[in-house]
Write a protein that binds this DNA or RNA. Sequence first.
DNA 1: TTAATTAATCGTAATATTGCAATTAAATAA
DNA 2: TTATTTAATTGCAATATTACGATTAATTAA
Lengths: 109, 109
Amino acid sequence: MGTAKTEIFSDQHNQIARFSKALGHPARVAILEYLFKTNSCICGDLVLEIGLAQATISQHLKELKSLDLIQGTVEGTSVCYCIHAENWAKMKQTLSEFLNQDLTHQNCC
Amino acid sequence: MGTAKTEIFSDQHNQIARFSKALGHPARVAILEYLFKTNSCICGDLVLEIGLAQATISQHLKELKSLDLIQGTVEGTSVCYCIHAENWAKMKQTLSEFLNQDLTHQNCC
DNA sequence: TTAATTAATCGTAATATTGCAATTAAATAA
DNA sequence: TTATTTAATTGCAATATTACGATTAATTAA
């Protein structure tokens, strides 16, 4: 065990969970917010900005990249990261739909 | 290690991460969606509905309860669970704010 | 009282996540 | 060429998560 039984859930539920999981660590939230706020998005800046070791930041960036929430292009010896606008919009859509569900029935308790 | 360094992040970032983490497992997504859709929200139903062991469902419910996203009241030998509307709205607000950030700068890569 | 029902908790195993030092890889500068 | 710079990767330790069988606790039914 320790592994989620993803196979018994719908694609939609797994997708919501996958996106949410990516946002489920404050370092990744901070990274994403920083990328939103600046245009000069070089990993070195992130290490200073966030305050975790370079290896750790790199690992968090990898996770965000694996979901295509950010993209990076090599720029000399450094890498320029930024939000992948299109995929961010898709995530926003997926999560908003879930969050905006209506409580058709009144609270039962 | 294995523990997130929450102390170096802002309350807001930690809060976003905490909510997201709660939605970061398909079973919890499925549970919440089921509670939205039905009024008869008894844990026994959830075990049948979701397809995980009773102990596992109970554990997921506990996590959702710890964030006050759901509430449960004892009803005879069973427990009636439902969405905590007010706290759900708070989460929705917190996450939406983050998700709806504007890309003021164009993609840099 | 004694069953029966339902959900929480305990204990445990397997796997995942977080974090970092050290190393490697790749590009640029000297 | 040999530094230097920057980020990815490797390897590891500590902790967290997921899952479930077994047990416990609490309520209702007989």
